[in-house]
């Protein structure tokens, strides 16, 4: 498990990419690169949402990663106010371009699973990214 404390500012979000790069380093390049791209954009959006809305009293939030054989799980935990009800976030209308409001739409297309909980003190977002292992080796080849 790896952990990163992120200063709750737009500048602070710049630490997320390098941290994610370290997490996927053990994976093969052809698996790591697309996974990293998905994770970085999703976590940037989730982090921006936290900076904009959570108003965390300690001015930071914490990311924790768990990497398994088939997925990477990233937990974002902050002590800000609970302002998020995912079911109430409207999906932007593609025919009527709007300036903001696309963050959750983007995240949902990048993650394999997204969960939110409020445990009384913390907002806890958990994003799971399944790892796309390329088919390789004789056991996967078609005959």
């Amino acid at each position: 498990m790896s952990e990163l404390t992120v200063t709750s500012t737009y500048e602070g979000l710049r630490a997320i990419g390098p941290w994610l790069r370290e997490i996927v380093e053990p994976l093969d390049d052809d698996v790591a690169a697309p996974l990293l791209a998905r994770m970085e954009l999703a976590l940037q959006e989730l982090g921006t949402n936290t900076v904009d809305h959570a108003d965390s009293p300690d001015g930071s939030f914490v990311l924790r990663s768990t990497i398994g054989d088939d997925s990477v799980r990233i937990e974002l935990r902050d002590r800000g106010r609970s302002t998020v009800d995912v079911s109430t976030i409207p999906t932007p209308d593609a025919d009527e371009p709007q300036v903001r409001g696309y963050g959750m739409m983007i995240i949902e297309q990048l993650v394999s699973r997204l969960e939110y909980a409020h445990d009384g003190e913390h907002n806890v977002w958990t994003a799971t990214f399944e790892i796309d292992h390329p088919a390789s080796g004789p056991e996967n080849s078609e005959h």
Binding site: Y10, G17, E40, L41, Q44, E45, T48, P97, Q98, V99, R100, Y102, G103, I106
Partner: peptide, 16 residues
Amino acid sequence: EFVDSAGLAALVQAMK
């Protein structure tokens, strides 16, 4: 090298 929704928003506002 990287664009997020906030960056996109700046472009969309200018476009509109």
